[in-house]
Amino acid sequence: MLEIVNLHASIDDNVILNGINLKVNLGEVHAIMGPNGSGKSTLSNVIAGHDGYDIISGDILFDGESVLDFPPEKRAHLGLFLSFQYPIEIPGVTVSNFIKTALNEIRNARGEEPLAASPMLKMMRDKMKVLEMDKGFLSRSLNEGFSGGEKKRNEIFQMAMLEPKIAILDETDSGLDIDALRIVANGVNSLRSKENTFIIITHYQRLLDYIIPDFVHVLFNGRIVKSGGKELALELEKRGYDWIKKEQE
């Protein structure tokens, strides 16, 4: 489904990604862990098509097709979703308007009719219920004045509405209290299927108690230095990242 081949990327002449290799199949959940500054958000942004980075070498493939030349919107049309570590505040655009626009843009790109107002609203209500969100959310300005937890929940709400094939969740757990974490995890779990895949980026293993990953990768200095099963996350939780750093030296 998603394949990253020997990817090197830099920003302002600082090389951040140093040869990433990763293969993700439908139905799988991958976790990427790593200390702050190891390049996790950079990797997410590059996969989503942020044009602030230079791709030095390597490739990103969706279903075998290179997407390096595709703008972010086209990657979204192909089924990619990135839950932002820091969702952007956009005053003047309401949550409902934003989601409606996004969903219909994606449908349009796939040659589907726009979803009419009333089924759209019903779909929004249903998804919000699962995420235990208040209806008032819809008419608020996008992320403006939202608490950290509200922003993250709003990201997951968008994901639920857009039904992506590949979802990357960049530190969705940070800023969530334990109840919110459980709600968000339930939301993610309810979307898991054989037809999609999740990449969960986190540096605590907390979230992985709720969303059980099939694979865990450790990112360090822009490279995946270790991969394993869900037990690797527990080991990282117990031992921290220092032993990884030592191993690398």
Partner: peptide
């Protein structure tokens, strides 16, 4: 705002439409 543009585009909104949406929000 470039970050806002990326956010909108990452959700599937085309560049021109994303710009228009931001401008309309600005003008609101």
């Amino acid at each position: 705002d470039e970050d806002a543009l990326f956010y909108l585009r990452a959700r599937g909104i085309r560049l021109k439409e994303a710009k228009a949406l931001l401008m309309l929000a600005f003008a609101n």
